[in-house]
Nucleic acid binder design. Structure first.
Length: 767
DNA sequence: TTCGGAACCCTTTTT
DNA sequence: GGGTTCCGAA
């Protein structure tokens, strides 16, 4: 492949970025400017034109999705060698390094990766040991302090020094907790997410020769979403990049929205002073959105001070004006959005609804299901958070990592085997007194009468089974087989049946079945599907169950989740002072700028059409708020906006949005006081009489799912499996009522239990 | 040990 | 308002 092939289809700036192969390079990539394309071409160029070996390149991302996409596109360009490249998330790259060398720090290669649930369990133990009052030191508080310290690269000892002279004596107790927590992880042979990075840096600091070997190996380092790196990631990158400094970072300071997770926008802002010889390339041509959307987004983000400064432009058409809807309340906002979607010629899959907080999703969900418009909610309840799923995973962790006491603790009495609180306390006390792990304690049970009677027998039996599963694992049994052994061995299904009502038992069994299914799917893709590899996969790749329904669905998610995605038509809702920007950011300019960047991210997701809306009255957390429209709306030039009434027709202009009023409304900082600014009194809110009647406008439902022909109760007997156009697959748990009023009690796999009228519900029977 | 109701929380959550 | 978590009664 020659240089022309490798840069074909790139614009001049993109080409420049691809060809700058050595030395530090900062690619400032605006939204929709073809960032991934540039990275992928760059990797291909290094390999095919510069003769760099694939193994000499490491590309770091934040999400698995980004890593997967990058790898796939590199493969398309240069072929299967892409499989051998280090293209992965920070966390999995670090996990890989630690699996190889973690024993230098006292971790075996089989270490567990603790999710926040396990982290919480461990922290509770720590609090108990230190006798910390849960009211003064809630677990959440402790974990956030510890997580923050790790993100900043501050270990337990350093943290103790840091707070030694702090005015708040509480922090010294937190330092103790941090220290004990870290010891606990060590004893359990476990790392939390923050540790994956932190311990890798610690490893390199402690063993310079090892660092040297990785420096030799990785001649080229690429980092995606550089604006989202935190201090410890920044240090990791910095240490790997020396002394060659072939470091290419890609990012957009205007899309930095994770400061609350420790991300430091200064990393990208200061890149040029960190690397004075750096070349800087700005990708400013946007290929995604209409000129109108882009201009509006540019104007909003221009109000920020902390930025590199960058103006996106496009050759795309002006397109439609941005629709603005000022709703009376959230129900009104919901029905407006649903109406716009249901009367559109576009497919459900072309739409997305973005909100600031998850709590806002409900009203849209209800509205969409009422009109039988298929939708999907990204985020929210997670499959891997369900108790029964975590139980089975805890078994697997115990089999894999015998020092993992937190997981062992979880399963000691699950399924119930007569091991009570006191028995567990005895075991723990013995373990603590003798410096043993929980597993070692369990192994002493046959000779030491630590617990009595039935509990003892049950625990010995459990220990025997665990030993057997471990042998099976060593002999190469696949994870799915070990799972099946576990489920059968402990009588999991019977226990579920006995302890839940039939409906719940069924749901839980289905969840277990789905987990097994997911494991098998994973195994099919692996060359060597070991248990250890599977556990790393579940810990790091939180693949929320794949949407195998090919149906076109409206996507609902928070704006944070929307970063990196794009849709034809976007609804950005809840643009109200106090909510977006949130009240908390009012007096903190940095936070306010981040809220604005969030708004910018949301707006730039739209390709063809953008809607923005605000509610005058909103009930949130049981309280009624009376909010003004967001300042972000005021930052959009009026000529780019079209104010709509509830039917989507042009409404009169917005007095409140005119220039004079804007100045008045915002010249004095408002900190959420109750007084009503003149601005709001002026704003005509779009509530026409009889607005409630969303049913007046009954549009034909355009659901891609076929409705069942005969809709009588007999065709949906209890226990039969069904598919609903909106809620997906489920099982009929009961039939209520008769004749016209038959209602089905259905337990959906993903959506919980619902009572639906047979007459109305779009149901299909599965066999 | 399991349940049910009180008490508590409440922005965002790439890994 | 709603969802989870926690504690006390049976």
């Amino acid at each position: 492949m020659n240089v022309d092939d490798l840069t074909s289809g790139l614009n001049p700036v993109q080409r420049e970025a691809v060809l700058a192969s050595s030395g530090p390079l900062l690619i400032l990539a605006g939204a929709g400017s073809g960032k991934t394309r540039v990275i992928v071409h760059k990797i291909a160029y290094l390999i095919a034109a510069q003769g760099v070996a694939p193994q000499q390149i490491i590309a770091l991302t934040f999400t698995n999705k980004a890593a997967q996409e990058m790898r796939e596109r590199v493969r398309e360009m240069i072929g299967p060698v892409a499989q051998s490249m280090w293209i992965s998330t920070f966390h999995s790259s670090c996990a890989r390094i630690l699996r190889s060398h973690g024993e230098l720090l006292g971790f075996s290669s089989k270490f567990s990766i603790y999710s926040d649930k396990e982290q919480t369990a461990l922290l509770k133990e720590v609090s108990r040991k230190l006798k910390l009052l849960p009211t003064m030191f809630p677990t959440k508080y402790l974990s956030s302090v510890i997580e923050d310290a790790k993100n900043r690269g501050v270990g337990p000892d350093e943290y103790a020094v840091e707070v030694h002279h702090a005015p708040n004596p509480k922090l010294r107790l937190v330092a103790n907790a941090y220290k004990l927590y870290q010891q606990g992880l060590q004893e359990n042979n476990a790392l939390d997410f923050g540790d994956l990075i932190f311990q890798t840096v610690a490893l390199f600091n402690k063993f310079p020769d090892l660092l040297e070997s990785y420096r030799d190996r990785f001649n080229y380092i690429l980092v995606d979403e550089y604006q989202d790196t935190n201090e410890i990631q920044y240090r990791l990158i910095g240490m790997l990049a020396e002394p060659k400094r072939n470091l290419c970072v890609v990012g957009d300071d205007d899309q930095s929205i994770y400061s609350w997770r420790g991300a430091q926008i200064k990393n990208i802002l200061d890149f040029e002073s960190d690397y004075p010889e750096a070349k800087v390339v700005r990708l400013e041509e946007n290929y995604r959105s209409t000129a109108t959307i882009l201009n509006a987004a540019n104007r909003v983000i221009a109000a920020n001070k902390q930025r590199k400064g960058k103006d996106l432009w496009t050759n795309n058409h002006a397109g439609e004006l941005i629709s603005l809807y000022l709703a009376a309340n959230e129900a009104d906002e919901g029905s407006y959005v649903v109406k716009r979607i249901s009367t559109s010629v576009r497919e459900p899959g072309d739409f997305a609804i973005f909100y600031r907080t998850n709590a806002q999703s409900r009203i849209f969900e209800e509205g969409l299901s009422r009109k039988a418009i298929p939708y999907t909610i990204v985020g929210g309840t997670k499959f891997y958070d369900r108790a029964e799923v975590r139980d089975l995973l805890a078994y697997l962790k115990v089999v894999n990592n015998e020092r993992d006491g937190i997981s062992l603790l979880r399963i000691l009495n699950v399924p119930a085997r007569g091991v009570g609180k006191t028995s567990i306390e005895h075991l723990q006390a013995y373990a603590d007194a003798n410096g043993l792990t929980l597993w070692e304690t369990l192994e002493r049970l046959p000779t030491e009468p630590l617990v009595r009677g039935g509990a003892r027998t049950a625990l010995c039996g459990l220990a025997d089974m665990i030993r057997q599963w471990r042998r099976n694992d060593q002999e190469g049994h696949k994870p799915s087989v070990i799972c099946a052994d576990i489920l059968a061995g402990v009588g999991f299904a019977d226990w579920l049946l006995k302890n839940n009502d039939p409906i719940q038992a069924q749901t839980r069994q289905e969840n277990i079945a789905e987990l097994l299914n997911a494991i098998e799917l994973w195994e099919d893709e692996q060359e060597a599907p070991t248990l250890a590899a599977y556990l790393e996969n579940v810990a790091l790749i939180n693949d929320d169950h794949v949407d195998n329904a090919t149906q076109s669905r409206v996507t609902l998610m928070t704006i944070h989740r929307a970063k990196g995605l794009e849709f034809d038509e976007v609804f950005l809702v809840g643009l109200e002072e106090g909510l977006f920007p949130g009240k908390r950011s009012y007096e903190k300019p940095d936070l306010l700028e981040e809220e604005r960047r969030l708004c910018y991210v949301g707006m730039t997701r739209a390709r063809k059409k953008l809607h923005m809306s605000a509610c005058r009255i909103r009930r949130l957390y049981g309280q009624t708020m009376d909010n003004r429209p967001s300042r972000f709306l005021m930052e959009i030039p009026l000529e780019l906006l079209k104010r709509e009434d509830s039917n989507g027709r042009e409404a009169q202009s917005v007095p409140g949005l005119e220039n004079g009023a804007r100045k008045r409304a915002y010249s004095v900082p408002q900190t959420g006081s109750k007084r009503q600014p003149r601005y709001l009194q002026n704003a005509t809110v779009a509530v026409s009489a009889g607005k409630r009647g969303a049913g007046v406008n009954r549009n034909p439902v355009k659901s891609p799912v076929q409705l069942s022909g005969d809709k009588d109760a007999a065709s949906f007997p209890q226990g039969c499996r069904v598919e609903h156009s909106v809620f997906g697959p489920g099982v009929v748990a009961g039939v209520k009522g008769s004749g016209e009023n038959v209602k089905l009690d259905i337990v959906f796999r993903d959506r919980g239990r619902k009572l639906l009228a047979l007459k109305i519900a779009s149901l299909k029977r599965l066999n």
